[in-house]
Design a protein around this nucleic acid. Structure first.
Lengths: 110, 110
DNA sequence: ATCATAGTACAGCCCTTGCTGTAGTACAGC
DNA sequence: GCTGTACTACAGCAAGGGCTGTACTATGAT
């Protein structure tokens, strides 16, 4: 079952991950969380984005369930919700994608 | 290096995968291609979408480099471009995401 | 209590992106 | 040659989603 077909129940998970990865800022946040927990203000400064913007994207990631938030004093620590997520992200990043440059869609034959 | 940090060079790959997975139709196409090659007309009927729509999304997936197209007579066969992609998609689908129902973001403590 | 900081929530505008419809290309058969 | 099929490309409109700015809550310090 682990390496079998993707069931309908798991399609919901892919939907969440898909919408989470749809935006560049959220992808960057996910990558950074792959290397350990982080805080909104820290993320905002490191990424050159406004705090409100980062906070909104973090809310999106929470809604999708990819990220967990826990209070620490007056700041909030964010972690990836599942360890498999970090593994999957690294696996995705390792994929070799040779894109045809001319954007001509027929690569094998014309 | 395989299980290390995600380098900037690999961020480009994540961008491609992210935009590819941003849309529900494209996610569905990717899942179907995980189980083997497919043809546009076949996909369109199975998914209840127009051929033009499916073709546009396939063009997007080609542009991102996730999918490879080869002519077969007067139809075109589509395959996933990399075997790791299928593995990564299955891994993503296996993630357990327990989303807090009330959308109240503080789960650990209030 | 007051002030400052960390973070969130939401309205508003704008830009991106998806879907439909149409025109066009490529191949197979007659 | 012509016709039909499989697929693509592109214009046009509509809708979804992102960024900014502001208002608000919560915690900690003085």
């Amino acid at each position: 079952m682990a390496s079998g077909l993707i069931t309908d129940a798991r399609l919901d998970t892919l939907d969440r991950v898909g919408t989470a990865m749809a935006d560049g800022v959220r992808r960057q946040i996910l990558v950074r969380l792959t290397n350990g927990p982080a805080y909104p203000a820290e993320l905002a400064e490191a990424m050159g984005e406004s705090r409100a913007n980062v906070s909104n994207h973090l809310a999106c990631l929470r809604g999708c369930g990819l990220v967990r938030a826990t209070r620490e004093g007056r700041q909030v620590r964010y972690d990836l919700a599942d360890r498999k997520l970090a593994r999957a992200l690294r696996l995705l990043a390792e994929i070799e994608l040779d894109v045809e440059p001319g954007h001509s869609y027929m690569d094998g034959r014309a």
